[in-house]
Amino acid sequence: MSERKIRVLIAKPGLDGHDRGAKVVARALRDAGMEVIYTGLRQTPEMVAEAALQEDVDVVGLSILSGAHMALVPRILDLLRAQGQENVKVFVGGIIPDEDIPHLLEMGVMGVYGPGTLTEQIIKDISAAVGRVDQTSPR
């Protein structure tokens, strides 16, 4: 099996303790054939960036319900760029007010997914952003 799998880091930066959404997304991406690194609750931006580096991921998904997204997301984007991972795609899920979405997209976020998003949409967007679809066909 020499084809490259899409590797995704699903992280929960900040202090809220609700990771149900993050787990649902992680599971859906797994079922789409991706390798999902799950880091658990209460990660600092530094921990998220470090995990993204060590795991050499293609995509980072951030689940934030605390309202701190306008502080956490740019910090994580900066850290990723500083360590040479400017090509890593970042998406955000959770509770994000509509008026913040354009700002996040402008910062370079790939997509913002609130409650009610179909997981198929996230999978489609990731595959498009990374530029390949991951499906192993076992012979």
């Binding site: 599971r27 079922d31 999902v36 880091t39 192993t136």
Partner: peptide, 10 residues
């Protein structure tokens, strides 16, 4: 699916 959840970092 060939996918995986890698959760040891938790």
């Amino acid at each position: 699916s060939g996918g995986a959840i890698l959760g040891d970092r938790v």
